[in-house]
Design a protein around this nucleic acid. Structure first.
Length: 482
RNA sequence: GGCGGCAUAGCCAAGUGGUAAGGCGAUGGUCUGCAAAAUCAUUAUUCAACGGUUCGACUCCGUUUGCCGCCUCCA
C-alpha cells in the first residue's frame, strides 16, 4: 500500500506520485511573525511535520521548505491595510526587525518544544526581494499585471482559471462582502504584487515602480518555485489560506511558468475552542507557550493528532487532560518493556505471539498513515495494542526478544512519527537515584513485612509529593517519575 | 448572497457499500494491607431528520435542519 492523499484541488483522495521518483518537494505556508504562536500553528505544523516524517519513513528523500513571512502581510482587506509587522512595531515602539526577530525565535522555540522538527530549511520573504521583483516584471510583461501610481496589481481577469482551487468565481464575488475601497484596481479581486510605501513606512526596497514592498502572495510563489522547481509535489497550509492566498500563488506561478504550480494541495482544518473559532478578537486565543506550561507536549500532540488533520479540532481542557491519561498508558508499557529487556530472560514462550502482535500493529499503522495520514486510526492501534501486550506481560512469559519488539514499535511510531511517547531516560538529578531508591524501597519493604503500614504509606506519600511514584507490585516495589 | 466542509454514545473520535475501531469518563469484578498500575466485564439494535438507489447504506444521491470555515488579517 502506498500513500494516498486528499488533494484539495481535485477534491478527491489520490494516489501520491512524486514528480521525481524517490524525491518529494513540499512547501508549507509558515507564520507571519508578529505575535505569539498559538494552537492553530501547532495543528498545522504538526500535520506537515508528520507528513514529512512519514514520507521519509516510506523511503522518500524529502525537501520540506517553510516560509517565514516577515514583510508585506497586510492587516486589512483590499490591500489597503497596514503591514502587520510594521503595525506591531509601532505599537511596541520598536524597529520592525525587532518584532520579526522576537517572534521568529518564539516560533522556533515553541515548535521545538512541541517536538516539531525543523523543515529542511526556512525561507524568508524579506530575503527574496530581488526574486519577487523579477517575478513581478515577468507578470507585467506577460500582461497579467499592471502598474498604477507606483503599485503593481495582478489582474485576476487575465487568468481564467482564477478560482479553481477554492471554487470561487469572480462574477459571484462581486455582490459579496468584499468592499473595494481601492480605486486603483481594475477589478475588485485584483491583488497587490508591489505596494508603494507611505513615507513613514520603514520596511521598503527600491524597485522599478517605487520605493515599496512586495505583496503577501508573491513571496510564496517565488520561493516555492525557486527551491522546489516550477512544478513541485506538495503545497500545504491552513484551510483559511485556500482563498485568496493559495489561489493567488497559483495565479502568479502558473501565469509565469505555464505548468501546474504543485500537484497536491493539502489543507489542515482549524481549531475551535469550546466549539467556537479561536481568534484574537474573541479573546479565546490559546498560545503554545500557555499550553506547554500546563500540559506535556505528548498530551498536546495526542490531542491534535486524535483528530484528523482535515477535521477541525475542538479544544477543551478536558480533552487534553484525557489525552494525558492515555499517553501515560503508552509510557507505562514502554517502561515495562524496558524493564523486561534489561532484566528478563532471553526468550519467553509468549515471544512468538508478541512478535506477531507487533508486526501486525506495525503494518496496520503504516496502512493508516498511507490512508491520507489517518493519525486517529494509528493512535487507536497503539492503544489496543497496549492492552494486548500488557496482558502478555502480565502472563510473565515474555523475554528480551519480545520486549525489544515492543520497544521498537513504540519508538518507530509513538515516538518517532507521532511524538506522543514520553521520554524513557531517567531524569538526571545530579546524583544517581537508583541506589538511593533501592535502599529506601528495601527499608520500606521491611516495614511492610512487619506490618508497619503507617510509616510505609508515609514514605510513599512523601515520595509522591517529591515527584516519585511508588507502585507495589507482586514482584516488589517499583518507582518512576510522577 | 457566493464557495467549501461537517453532523457517529456523557465527552473526544475512526469508519473510503457487507452489518458500529479506539481513547477519556463512569459502574462492577480480579489483584493489593491500603493505594497506584495492570486486567476482566458492562457502557450506540444505531450513525441529525426525511426520502431515493441497492440484495445490503454510517458510507452513494436528493431534500430539510443545525454547526463550522472562507469570501476582510489569521495556521
Amino acid at each position: 500500500m502506498s500513500l494516498k492523499l486528499y488533494n484539495s484541488m481535485s477534491r478527491e483522495i489520490e494516489e501520491f506520485k512524486p514528480v521525481k521518483e524517490g524525491h518529494v518537494g513540499m512547501y508549507v505556508c509558515g507564520p507571519t511573525v508578529y505575535g505569539p504562536p498559538h494552537l492553530g500553528h501547532a495543528k498545522s505544523y504538526i500535520t506537515f511535520d508528520i507528513l514529512a516524517k512519514f514520507l521519509r519513513i516510506s523511503g522518500y528523500n524529502v525537501r520540506y521548505v517553510q516560509n517565514i513571512t516577515d514583510v508585506g502581510h497586510l492587516t486589512d482587506d483590499a490591500d489597503e491595510g497596514e503591514d502587520k509587522i510594521e503595525r506591531q512595531a509601532r505599537i511596541d515602539m520598536v524597529h520592525p526587525w525587532e518584532i520579526v526577530d522576537k517572534w521568529t525565535r518564539q516560533y522556533m522555540l515553541d515548535m521545538e518544544r512541541l517536538g516539531i522538527a525543523h523543515p529542511s530549511f526556512y525561507v524568508r520573504a524579506s530575503q527574496h526581494i530581488p526574486e519577487q521583483i523579477h517575478a513581478i516584471k515577468e507578470l507585467i510583461d506577460a500582461g497579467h499585471a499592471y502598474e498604477i501610481n507606483g503599485s503593481v496589481y495582478y489582474s485576476v481577469e487575465s487568468f481564467p482559471e482564477y478560482g479553481k482551487l477554492s471554487g470561487n468565481k469572480l462574477e459571484e464575488q462581486k455582490d459579496g462582502v468584499r468592499i473595494s475601497v481601492n480605486t486603483d484596481k481594475k477589478h475588485p479581486g485584483d491583488f497587490a504584487l508591489w505596494k508603494k510605501a507611505e513615507p513613514e513606512h520603514i520596511l521598503k526596497w527600491d524597485s522599478p515602480w517605487s520605493k515599496g514592498y512586495p505583496g503577501w502572495h508573491i513571496e510564496c510563489s517565488v520561493m516555492a518555485n525557486k527551491y522546489l522547481g516550477i512544478n513541485f509535489d506538495i503545497h500545504g497550509g491552513g484551510l483559511e489560506n485556500k482563498f485568496p492566498h493559495h489561489e493567488c500563488e497559483i495565479a502568479q506561478s502558473e501565469a509565469i511558468h505555464k505548468v501546474p504550480f504543485c500537484n497536491y494541495w493539502v489543507h489542515n482544518n482549524m481549531i475551535t475552542v469550546d466549539g467556537i473559532k479561536m481568534g484574537k478578537s474573541l479573546g479565546n486565543f490559546i498560545t503554545c507557550e500557555d499550553l506547554l506550561s500546563r500540559h506535556s507536549k505528548q498530551a498536546i500532540r495526542a490531542f491534535l493528532l486524535s483528530t484528523h488533520y482535515s477535521s477541525p479540532s475542538n479544544y477543551t481542557e478536558e480533552a487534553i487532560e484525557g489525552m494525558a491519561t492515555g499517553v501515560a498508558r503508552l509510557d507505562h508499557l514502554n517502561r515495562r518493556a524496558h524493564e523486561i529487556a534489561a532484566q528478563g530472560k532471553e526468550e519467553g514462550s509468549g515471544d512468538k505471539n508478541l512478535l506477531e502482535i507487533c508486526e501486525k500493529a506495525d503494518k496496520d499503522i503504516n496502512d493508516c498513515m498511507n490512508n491520507n495520514l489517518d493519525t486517529p486510526g494509528s493512535i487507536a492501534i497503539l492503544y489496543s495494542c497496549t492492552s494486548e501486550v500488557n496482558k502478555l506481560f502480565d502472563g510473565g512469559q515474555i523475554g528480551k526478544k519480545g520486549a525489544v519488539a515492543v520497544i521498537s514499535l513504540l519508538e518507530k511510531w509513538a515516538d518517532g512519527l507521532l511524538g506522543i511517547l514520553p521520554a524513557y531516560e531517567e531524569e538526571s538529578y545530579g546524583v544517581d537515584l537508583e541506589p538511593i531508591m533501592s535502599l529506601v524501597l528495601d527499608i520500606r519493604s521491611e516495614m511492610k513485612k512487619n506490618k508497619n503500614y503507617a510509616v510505609a504509606d508515609k514514605i510513599r506519600d512523601e515520595l509522591h509529593k517529591a515527584g516519585i511514584l511508588v507502585e507495589d507490585t507482586k514482584d516488589g516495589a517499583r518507582w518512576r517519575k510522577a
